[in-house]
Design a binder for these strands. Structure first.
Length: 422
DNA sequence: AGGGATGATTATTG
DNA sequence: CAATAATCATCCCT
């Protein structure tokens, strides 16, 4: 307020400033209602303010007129003086905000995904890393990879062209504003610092637009990733031979279908899948078998017959070779269990029975039992709720409290141990 | 097209 | 950390 009155009084010497080039009919009216000197100053300021409302040509003409006015330097110096004070007070308000953590996160992600990084290597490296993270084997997905990379490159291209557009627009706009300010600095005092601040404001605005771009790019990449790199989405069934091998192992180890790490590795090798896929398979198989044993009986019988024959052959060969510890020498279906991992589990499962079987013979035992059940009146009782040895097997895997409420009869669960009782 | 089969993931548990 | 149970997403047969 002080400044304003000081300005007004300071400018009282500028009387007659207005009348030179203002043919405004308003000025006549105002002249009557206001004091003379104040009216003149008010008028000239009003003219300056009104420039924005005028057409371009009018405004240019007016600006030129004002610039050439004889009292202009005086007005300018007063404005400078006022500015000096206000700028000082404003300076503290504007503080440099630290780099936005949000935008840093987005930047990091885009870099990691290969969208904003160096051209080629980044993209494929990110894709490979993503595939590795997804747990898939890196060799089997080259087709998906190329597809993924193509889409990623598309996103990348859009991102870069948009970014460039924004940058160009930003610099254009900045230039424009700077020119404007420079132009205006002839009429009013504008310090370089002010220009700087204005530029910073513009950049902030544009960087917020950029952040939106980055955000949506990140979202697009995430969608792309989930679309292409979620293993569930490109699930392939295992081939028949692999399923066969796995099922044979499963049903011949039905009393304890938990392959050791070594066994898993061997199965994986034999099936051309990864160890974790073997683990998945056994996990799924166990749970699904246990959930609906009836449904799997046919399959169980099938594999029982199949492996029983093999087992018999193997046993015969083994006894022929006088070496029971190596039963799998000539068998087309071999479950070589070279060390004690599975043996321990097998024995553990047999502990209650006091049966003492050579660990490596456990598969054959299981299989033969299966075959025995098959021939010994294994009716088609799918879902009939009849008591089967499979149930017991399932129950004995883990002491679950309520394994399968639908098919399980109310009878005592531990009363029959047919898997080892004959 | 629809539904069961199936491989993979996620949450939970011991 | 491995196993289970539930669930998802896709395959594949009818």
């Amino acid at each position: 307020m002080d400044d304003q009155t000081r300005m007004m009084t300071g400018l009282t010497g500028l009387g007659g400033l207005a009348q030179a080039d203002v043919g405004d009919p308003d000025s006549v009216r105002k002249q009557q209602s206001l004091g003379q000197p104040q009216q003149d100053i008010g008028d000239i300021l009003q003219q300056i303010m009104a420039i924005t409302d005028e057409s371009l040509d009018e405004a240019q003409a007016r600006k030129h007129a004002l610039n050439c006015h004889r009292m202009k330097p005086a007005l300018f110096s007063v404005l400078c003086e006022i500015k000096e004070k206000t700028v000082l007070s404003i300076r503290g308000v504007q503080e440099e905000d630290p780099p936005d953590p949000q935008i840093m996160r987005l930047d990091n992600m885009l870099l990691a995904e290969g969208v904003s990084g160096p051209e080629k290597g980044g993209g494929s490296a990110a894709a490979a890393a993503a595939a590795a993270a997804a747990g898939g084997s890196p060799t089997d997905s080259s087709i998906e990879h190329s597809d993924y990379r193509a889409k990623l490159a598309q996103i990348r291209q859009i991102y870069h062209s948009e970014l460039e557009k924004y940058e160009q627009a930003c610099s254009e706009f900045t230039n424009h504003v700077m020119n404007l300010l420079r132009e205006q600095s002839r009429t009013r005092p504008i310090s370089p610092k002010e220009i700087e601040r204005m530029v910073a404001i513009i950049h902030r605005k544009f960087s917020s637009i950029q952040m939106q771009l980055k955000q949506s790019t990140c979202e697009a990449v995430m969608i792309l990733r989930s679309r292409f790199l979620d293993a569930r989405r490109k699930r392939r069934n295992f081939n028949k031979q692999a399923t066969e091998v796995l099922n044979e192992y499963f049903y011949s180890h039905l009393s304890n279908p938990y392959p050791s790490e070594e066994a898993k590795e061997e199965l994986a090798k034999k099936c051309g899948i990864t160890v974790s896929q073997v683990s998945n398979w056994f996990g799924n198989k166990r749970i699904r078998y246990k959930k609906n044993i009836g449904k799997f009986q046919e399959e169980a019988n099938l594999y029982a017959v199949k492996t029983a024959v093999d087992a018999a052959n193997v046993s015969a060969q083994a006894s022929q070779a006088n070496s029971p510890a190596t039963p799998n020498s000539g068998s087309p279906v071999s479950y070589s269990l070279p060390n004690t991992g599975d043996a321990y589990l097998s024995l553990r499962s047999l502990n209650g029975e006091g049966l003492n079987i050579a660990p490596s013979l456990q598969p054959q035992v299981d299989t033969l039992h299966r075959a025995t059940h098959l021939t010994g009146g294994y009716e088609e009782l799918s879902g009939s709720g009849l008591y089967t040895p499979h149930c017991l097997d399932a129950n004995s895997w883990q002491d679950t409290t309520n394994p399968h409420p639908v098919t399980s009869p109310p009878g005592p669960p531990g009363s029959v141990h047919s898997d080892t009782s004959n």
